[in-house]
């Protein structure tokens, strides 16, 4: 993939059956970032995971009531940074209040945001009137 700006903009219904599609897009992008000097296979898995977790999160915070309920995902690939935005229409949550998992007493839930925070360079969640947005950045240097 060339280093020119590429933007992928996807809108899916709030249903988990579309997670594979979204994750696969991330995986392909990671694998084809020719100018990324790090481990592209690892990056491909991480982008699959981060997009899957972020989309799951958005779906969980929405209630699917009909085809009008959707999650929008924008992936912007720039020369030296990857920027992902996931929009949801739910109640929203405080990302700073999400605790780090207790590794000595592992729980079934609560690892998704931890993965995003650990594997990416910055994560913010902003509540807005129209929609909430989870914004994830990963340096490609």
């Amino acid at each position: 993939m060339q280093s020119a700006d590429i933007q992928v903009d996807v809108i899916i219904p709030t249903q988990t059956k579309y997670l594979d599609l979204i994750g696969s897009i991330g995986e392909r992008i990671g694998r084809e970032l020719d100018h990324y000097s790090g481990d592209r296979d690892a990056l491909a898995y991480q982008l699959n995971l981060v997009l899957t977790e972020a989309t799951t999160n958005a779906i969980k915070h929405s209630n699917y009531q009909g085809p009008e309920d959707c999650v929008r995902i924008i992936i912007h690939i720039q020369e030296d940074e990857l920027n992902i935005k996931v929009f949801d229409h739910g109640q929203g949550f405080d990302i700073e209040a999400v605790p780090i998992p207790d590794f000595d007493n592992p729980k079934e839930n609560g690892m998704g945001i931890y993965f995003i925070k650990t594997l990416m360079d910055s994560v913010t969640y902003t509540r807005m009137e129209e929609a909430n947005v989870l914004e994830i950045k990963k340096s490609l240097r």
């Binding site: 899957t52 977790e53 609560g110 998704g112 931890y114």
Partner: peptide, 13 residues
């Protein structure tokens, strides 16, 4: 080839 947090959670359960 791929497992996410919910998959890990299912195995942990």
């Amino acid at each position: 080839k791929f497992i996410d947090s919910s998959g890990l959670g299912a195995l942990l359960a």
